[in-house]
């Protein structure tokens, strides 16, 4: 049951001066599945995300997205906002980046900026509240309310995002990314700082997004209880190179991975440490 490839990365290299953060990385992300990228700190996971989403321009290599409606797109040639706007590849951040003084609902509406801005016709239709703009506004509100309900944020919709607890902020960031209508959702450590109950909820959410909405998810995560339980496919990076790839079961028993995580001379039981509670 090999699904169609949504994103294929070929020979991607990213150098910062003398430092090679990503070294000749090739991998592919299937459509409608959850792919996890794991690896020790400094392995180049976030740099990979930055290359993918237009924040860095890769030194060499290609990132091709098979967009379901717009055909093939070369993400490595697109800058900054165009990756999110045109290719609909949307990301969240390791250290949450919300709009803290704006309310949760406003955060979700801002995420739909491009559609609304087009409808407001250089703000003229918006200033006079013409029907075209009003319709777009109602649509945007519907989308926002849909995701608010889905992620259990309705009760706090009018609270400033920055005033809310950490775990809730993580959910808001995911909700905001979903409002952009992503083809590929890239989550950078969504479980960081969550308690066990919250990360269990995150698992349920990620699985339902993938199964019910058909959104492909690319996940960077250290929390093995998330990675092992939701991923269809795992890719392990170390020092910017891919050292292993496969299903959670294969990864858990891969000697290379165990070595990267625990070192060779470690005496503890490796399998249980990365095994999580799968």
């Amino acid at each position: 049951m090999s699904a169609a490839t949504l994103l294929s990365v070929e020979n991607l290299t990213m150098r910062f001066g003398g430092l090679t953060a990503i070294d000749d990385l090739s991998l592919s992300v299937p459509a409608g599945k959850i792919t996890a990228i794991i690896g020790p700190n400094g392995a180049g996971k976030t740099t990979f995300f930055n290359c993918l989403t237009g924040f860095y321009k890769p030194t060499t290599g290609s990132v091709r997205l098979a967009h379901p409606k717009r055909g093939e797109m070369r993400l490595e040639t697109m800058t900054g906002h165009r990756v999110a706007r045109d290719a609909q590849v949307v990301r969240t951040f390791q250290n949450i980046r919300l709009f803290p003084k704006m309310t949760v609902l406003e955060n979700l509406i801002v995420a739909q900026h491009n559609r609304l801005q087009d409808a407001s016709r250089f703000s003229i239709a918006g200033l006079f509240s013409l029907p075209g703009y009003r319709k777009a506004e109602v649509e945007a509100l519907k989308t926002a309310v849909h995701w608010l309900d889905r992620l259990g944020l309705t009760g706090i919709a009018d609270t400033a995002a920055g005033d809310l607890p950490y775990g809730t902020q993580r959910r808001i960031e995911i909700a905001r990314a979903l409002c952009v209508d992503p083809v590929l959702l890239c989550l950078d450590e969504p479980a960081a700082g969550l308690n066990p109950r919250e990360s269990a909820e995150l698992n349920t959410l990620l699985l339902s997004l993938c199964r019910e909405e058909g959104i492909a998810i690319l996940l960077i995560e250290h929390d093995m209880s998330v990675v092992m339980n939701v991923s269809d496919h795992i890719c392990v990076l170390n020092y910017g190179r891919k050292i292993a790839e496969g299903t959670p079961l294969e990864i858990r028993n891969d000697p290379q991975v165990i070595k990267a995580y625990l070192g060779e001379d470690d005496e503890s039981e490796p399998a249980t440490l990365i095994g999580g509670n799968a």
Partner: peptide, 27 residues
Amino acid sequence: RLRKLPVGRAWEALREDEIACKAMGMN
């Protein structure tokens, strides 16, 4: 009025976090 329009919300979002604005596909 502008403040309640997309352009005004985008201004405030820009004040709050420019990088997040880019990630949302904002020019």
